[in-house]
Design a protein around this nucleic acid. Structure first.
Lengths: 192, 192
DNA sequence: TGCAAACACCTAATAGCATTAGGCAACTGC
DNA sequence: GCAGTTGCCTAATGCTATTAGGTGTTTGCA
């Protein structure tokens, strides 16, 4: 009987594709096994268990997004960079909703540190170099940007904007304008 | 044999408490049944299925948050109102992480319309009356605020800030300052 | 070229969860 | 105090996750 040619990597990639098609929470060992036409138990040589499978998909997604982000940021600064990174995340989420959801998984500290997560913070921090912010405001701004990007994308993906005007495209553009303006005129502590 | 006294409402409330203790995705009919010392099948008279149980918890959470938000907003305007609503969400999420996670569930359109969801948009819109925004910027601002609140809270709850300075309390305060400043000086379309 | 080790996949077994059908006993209203 | 309702039960089905141990295929090395 010919083999399916499973490896941890191919299992993870297939899981990621299934996540995009079916939703991240539908990705289970049995679904992946069916996809390969293989017995469920066969997966357990490549992936420790269901949780491990999901974590691997999350790590893959974080990596892919970081790679895209880095490419988009190359040679850009200021508002251009802000838009480039924001669009990277948003486009990725729309192309790969399951992977994007995976990337939001809570990872344990050690795994998170070894993941592409820190690259993401570094990219946002790099963007802020184009604005006139010093610590600790830089950290506050990173947290705001990360939250705003993720929050907006989550709402859009969740269909929150499906039945109202204006379209999400328009809002996104204006929100990036607004965030850029905010970063250029970040309020001082204790100011009116 | 004495009865446990189940009703759809008590099942939902117990599910919500279990969500806060164990995490929303751990809330299943079997866990709830064990909590009541009852056979799993007994739940099915009160709740249609596992999905229905989760949706009910989500609706409860949305309602509770809207109630708290409305109370917090009473008699406040402008930045005070912004802080009040933001704190409402954040405090709720920290007190009831499982319920908060439930509230982020994607609901189908009809259910969403009948939920307390619209009350939340209305509250944010009410806050914006304290600022000088007209449509469509008002809608953009609602989407930004909703996303920023949710995104920040998700990050904080997910432990993203656990190993860095400054503390989440500090960042939250400064981010509210920043959002207030942004709403007061919302950039016009096509402005530098 | 051929053998042995490594390995990809299998079968079998256990245990937990979701869901449905049908039954009995405990409450409720008259 | 009885009849009807209904809350909870047992039983049964089928799916999923996970582990253990077996078998045939592939690969590296002599």
């Amino acid at each position: 009987m010919p083999r399916a040619g499973l490896t941890a990597d191919r299992v993870t990639r297939a899981g990621a594709e299934l996540a995009d098609e079916l939703g991240f929470d539908q990705v289970t060992p049995s679904v992946v096994a069916r996809h390969f036409g293989v017995q469920v138990a066969s997966l357990y040589s490549h992936v420790r268990n269901a949780e491990d499978l999901r974590v691997r998909i999350a790590l893959l997604a974080l990596e892919e997004m970081a790679d895209r982000g880095a490419a988009a940021l190359a040679g850009r600064a200021g508002k251009d960079a802000l838009i480039a990174l924001g669009d990277t995340y948003r486009d990725y989420a729309r192309e790969h909703p399951g992977r994007y959801a995976a990337a939001q998984m809570r990872l344990d500290h050690e795994t998170a540190l070894a993941s592409a997560g820190p690259r993401h913070s570094a990219m946002i921090r790099a963007i802020l170099r184009g604005y006139d912010l010093t610590e600790p405001d830089q950290t506050h701004a990173i947290r705001l940007l990360g939250g705003a990007f993720h929050g907006y994308i989550t709402q859009e993906l969740g269909g929150s904007f499906d039945h109202s005007e204006p379209g999400p495209e328009k809002s996104w553009g204006r929100i990036l304008d607004a965030l850029d303006a905010l970063l250029r005129h970040w309020p001082h502590e204790g100011q009116p």
